[in-house]
Amino acid sequence: MPITREKTRGKAVKKEKRYSIEEVVEQFGICKRTVIYCIEQEWLEPADPEEQQLDQEDVARLSLICELQEKMGVNDEAVPIILHLVDQIHYLQVGIQKRDKYH
């Protein structure tokens, strides 16, 4: 069973669960072509690249990419820029958390 958002709200999300591309298509309603395209563009780096298995992080990132493109009209040029900025925000947030924890 995939971990649904409701169950994970407010907590660190479990990352162990792996999905094949087919499972992602089936369970998250994302089309196969999009998944493969995201991997080809290196927007997505599957947790297990050889077996093409995606983890929860990959799926969440994939959902974000789909939403950026389908719901917000972001084009292919802007997607990697947004992802990079979002990743930097996360990196800084983790840094601030660590700083607050250890000082």
């Binding site: 995939p2 971990i3 649904t4 958002r5 994970t8 709200r9 660190a12 999300v13 990352k15 369970q27 998250f28 309603g29 780096e45 947790a47 929860q56 992080e57 799926v59 969440a60 990132r61 959902s63 974000l64 992802l83 990079h84 979002v86 990743d87 930097q88 996360h90 990196y91 947030q93 983790v94 958390q97």
Partner: peptide
């Protein structure tokens, strides 16, 4: 379906550290 991306990166995820 599933968590938002930021929720998977809260304690530092693969992408947080490896991208770019």
């Amino acid at each position: 379906q599933g968590p938002f991306y930021y929720e998977t990166q809260q304690d530092g995820g693969r992408y947080t550290y490896s991208t770019g």
